[in-house]
């Protein structure tokens, strides 16, 4: 099993519903976020291109945050999902420094926090909160090891990219372009 997310930039309108749904679902304190939206404008008037991306932890296959964690708080569970055990975390911040996606933040309660792919929901057969609310249905979550899953088929049939491939982290959040 290999959980992954694919996000269709052709459909995303950057509304940030994913952000607020995550904050509410996961009790993320106001002022912090586990996912966020970026806007990239290229070209010059009137020949322009705009890419909106909902970004988060990439749950990398080769996760530097897990490697560098001195206490084992950052660890990998089923489907390759990278989690932080808040009880083991000493808040040293090594993982924050090591992440090429700037996906982790220091929770005011003293541990490092980030996207969990809403594994607590996934274990109950639900979609991650961000995916479940997205009004444009531009986000897909599923198992890449299952070739007939929607996400596998999308990655078969559509052009896609990942962020910072040069970092060698083998990220598992894919952007359909």
């Amino acid at each position: 099993m290999r959980y992954a997310m694919a996000i269709d930039t052709k459909k995303c309108v950057g509304c940030s519903d994913c952000v607020v749904a995550c904050q509410i679902e996961n009790n993320v304190p106001l002022g912090y976020c586990r996912d966020w939206v970026t806007e990239t404008v290229s070209g010059s008037y009137p020949n322009l291109d705009l890419e909106l991306r909902s970004e988060r932890c990439n749950h990398c296959d080769n996760a530097p945050c897990v490697r560098c964690c001195p206490t084992g708080a950052s660890h990998i569970v089923e489907g390759g999902v990278v989690l932080v055990d808040g009880f083991k975390c000493i808040g040293c911040g090594a993982c924050i420094e090591s992440c090429p996606y700037d996906a982790r933040y220091s929770h005011p309660d003293g541990y490092v926090d980030k996207c969990t792919f809403c594994i607590h929901r996934v274990r109950k057969g639900l979609q991650p909160a961000c995916v479940s609310v997205c009004p444009t249905k531009c986000m897909y979550f599923g198992d890449l090891d299952d070739p007939s899953s929607e996400i596998s088929e999308l990655l078969q049939n559509r052009k896609w990219k990942v962020l910072a491939p040069e970092a060698g982290t083998k990220p598992q959040v894919y952007y359909l372009i």
């Binding site: 940030s16 952000v19 966020w36 970026t38």
Partner: peptide
């Protein structure tokens, strides 16, 4: 829009 830039300003370990 919540962006990572905002977030860095707020927290900084």
């Amino acid at each position: 829009m919540a962006t990572r830039r905002d977030f860095i300003k707020i927290t900084g370990l």
